Simulated assay, not measured.
Amino acid sequence: MKPTSVFLLAFLLPALPASAQEIKVHLSPTCGCCKAWVRHLEQAGFTPRVVESSDMAAIKRATGVPDKVQSCHTAVIEGYFVEGHVPASDIRKLLKDRPAALGLAVPDMPVGSPGMEVPGVTPDKFETLLVSAGGQTVVYGKH
């Protein structure tokens, strides 16, 4: 390919923000809060690839999400799982820090977490947990 062709190709392709990263999101096709979390990721510059599943338990087993930190949806990015309504800022921090861990989790579905906002309701305080091999957890973010 000629250098001018490469330039034209690069010019014509849609530009993605430098921060755009693909994240694979497994969710139930009937879950509205999961779709709201996907919108949160998009607004933060991620590129979600949604995979609808009627057997989320199998997805969680396959990705190694311990029972005690499970929530409604499970995402995978760069070898880590992201379980539940984890803020995009915590995912960015995870990808920057690259800790020896399985992933991040916001157990349950705290009101006020991304995708779980309820107008007129005071948000819950919640924590993002870093999950290591064996299922041990430490607080990775407080919200």
Rank of each mutant, 00 (worst) to 15 (best):
Q70T: 13
T74R: 05
A105W: 01
A88F: 08
P87C: 02
L95V: 11
S113M: 12
I77T: 03
H73C: 08
L102M: 13
K68S: 14
P87F: 01
R92I: 12
D97P: 12
G84F: 00
V65P: 00
H85E: 13
P87H: 00
I77N: 01
L94A: 06
K60T: 07
S113Y: 14
D90T: 03
A58H: 12
T63P: 05
Y80R: 04
D108C: 10
R98C: 14
A100L: 12
G79M: 09
E83G: 02
V65Q: 00
R61P: 02
M109Y: 12
G64K: 03
A57N: 15
P66R: 11
P66E: 13
C72Q: 09
P99T: 11
P107A: 03
I59R: 06
M116E: 14
A88E: 04
D108Q: 08
R98M: 15
G115F: 13
E83A: 07
G115R: 11
P99Y: 11
S71R: 03
P114D: 15
D108I: 04
G64Y: 12
A57P: 06
I91W: 04
D90N: 07
L102S: 10
A105V: 02
E83I: 05
A58T: 14
E78F: 06
S113P: 14
V76Y: 01
V65M: 00
A105I: 02
G103N: 03
H73A: 06
K68L: 15
V86Y: 01
M109S: 09
P114W: 12
T63L: 13
I77A: 03
P87V: 01
D67Y: 11
K68F: 11
L102W: 07
G84E: 04
A100Q: 15
V111L: 10
M116P: 10
V86S: 00
A88Q: 04
V65T: 00
C72D: 07
L104S: 04
A101M: 09
V106I: 05
T63N: 12
R61D: 11
V65F: 00
G115H: 13
V65R: 00
D90P: 00
E83N: 07
E78N: 12
V82C: 10
L104D: 05
M56Y: 09
M116I: 15
D67W: 08
A105H: 00
V111D: 04
P110N: 09
G115Y: 12
G112T: 10
I77P: 02
S89T: 14
K60M: 05
E83F: 03
A75S: 08
A101E: 08
K60F: 04
H85L: 10
K93P: 09
V86R: 01
G64H: 10
K96W: 13
L95T: 13
G115I: 11
P87A: 00
E83V: 05
P87M: 01
P99L: 07
E78M: 07
F81S: 06
Y80T: 03
K96Q: 15
L104H: 02
V76T: 03
R98Q: 15
T63Q: 15
A88K: 06
G84K: 01
D108M: 11
Y80L: 05
S71M: 07
R61K: 11
P107W: 02
V106T: 06
A75G: 02
A75W: 00
